[in-house]
């Protein structure tokens, strides 16, 4: 991983193509239909531990500063994202004012998988766990808050109802 960027994999373009969100949404729909919710969750958890291993390692070694830097650079490369990243002593809060994926899917009148926002939780938990952190998600349907915290932050348990279903 280059020290000049917190992103593990880099492209020659500054931002990705938003139409790829169509494929992510369609992938979730396929996995939920063919493998069920548990299969989808297993996919996300393995993706989080495997594909994202370089980031998880960076978070484990760099702590919350590395987490904050990653999310700032991550959302800078996502077209249409409106996001603030707040770094506190025991946690990083990622305030997603406008989710780029939900915004683009909605603008294109795509049928969005209702469980779409849960992917951030299952993926985020797997990645945080690898880095010795805890993850919580609150909100969804286009705006949410991700929290990545040290174990000592004593976050309240994740309540499933805190993750809002997406309306197309």
């Amino acid at each position: 991983m280059s020290s000049s960027t917190a992103l593990p994999y880099t492209d020659t373009k500054p931002q990705g193509s938003a139409d790829f969100y169509f494929a992510t949404n369609a992938t979730f729909r396929f996995l939920l239909r063919r493998l069920g919710a548990e299969g989808w969750r297993s996919y996300l958890e393995q993706l989080g531990r495997g594909y994202f291993a370089p980031v998880n390692r960076q978070w484990r070694e760099g702590g919350l500063g590395a987490v904050a830097r990653y999310w700032r650079e991550f959302f800078a490369a996502e077209p249409g994202a409106v996001v603030d990243v707040e770094e506190r002593p025991d946690r990083v809060e990622v305030h997603v004012r406008e989710c780029p994926a939900i915004k683009h899917l909605r603008a294109a009148a795509r049928e969005i998988v209702p469980e779409y926002c849960q992917h951030c939780y299952w993926l985020g938990c797997a990645r945080a766990g690898e880095a010795g952190l805890t993850m919580r998600l609150h909100g969804g349907n286009g705006a949410c808050r991700h929290t990545f915290a040290r174990a000592g932050a004593a976050l309240p348990p994740q309540v499933r109802q805190d993750i809002v279903e997406v309306r197309s």
Binding site: L7, Y9, D11, L47, E78, P100, A101
Partner: peptide, 9 residues
């Protein structure tokens, strides 16, 4: 979140 920037990966 799964992004579009590194989609191919």
């Amino acid at each position: 979140m799964i992004g579009c920037y590194d989609f191919c990966g």
